[in-house]
């Protein structure tokens, strides 16, 4: 049984974008704060800290989740993927990122990392979503700049691109 007492700091380790990372934290530290301020992976953003806005969405073992509703200690031993893990090592954007640029799917870019992570999970499960399915997944995110139109268009374009590739 893993146990962390309230007045204790513990070492927490997991893989982040394929690399082992670790750091010390209290049991109460949120995964958002651990990623951003202990590890220094600031691409994951904090928009509400009560699970509504979706800015902080990351993948935990490949599954999109709100990192503000996750304790750092809950990520122990897991594979965490964040927006920093999407582009190629040389910085080349992946297909989803490219589509976001092409369709002007972001303005201030603050909500964008979370949205990218949601669709990274979802498109892996369902590479050819309908527009309704895209909207359903996107409805778990708040964006104040774009009115969402470009985001829907970008994901549709990626989905169309998926269909061109041999399955």
């Amino acid at each position: 049984m893993r146990r962390v007492n309230k007045d204790e700091r513990t070492r927490i380790s997991f893989t982040l974008n394929g690399r082992a990372v670790s750091g010390e934290a209290e049991s109460r530290m949120l995964l958002t704060d651990f990623l951003r301020h202990v590890i220094g992976a600031t691409g994951t953003h904090v928009g509400c800290e009560h699970g509504v806005c979706g800015c902080c969405t990351v993948l935990i073992d490949g599954v999109a989740a709100r990192s503000c509703l996750t304790l750092a200690v809950q990520a122990e031993g897991r594979a965490v993927t964040t927006v920093e893990g999407l582009a190629a090592p040389d910085g080349a954007l992946n297909a989803l990122q490219q589509a976001f640029q092409r369709h002007h799917a972001l303005q201030c870019g603050f909500c964008t990392p979370g949205i990218l992570m949601s669709f990274t999970d979802y498109l892996a499960r369902n590479p050819h979503p309908t527009e309704d399915e895209i909207r359903d997944v996107l409805s778990g995110h708040l964006c104040r700049c774009t009115g969402y139109a470009g985001i829907v268009a970008a994901v549709r374009a990626v989905s169309a691109g998926n269909s061109k590739q041999p399955s």
Partner: peptide, 19 residues
């Protein structure tokens, strides 16, 4: 023209105040 701001923002390399 697509935005020159985007690659950094799409890669988690934005530099917002809390970053």
């Amino acid at each position: 023209l697509v935005r020159k701001e985007d690659p950094a923002l799409l890669s988690g390399r934005g530099r917002y105040a809390d970053d």
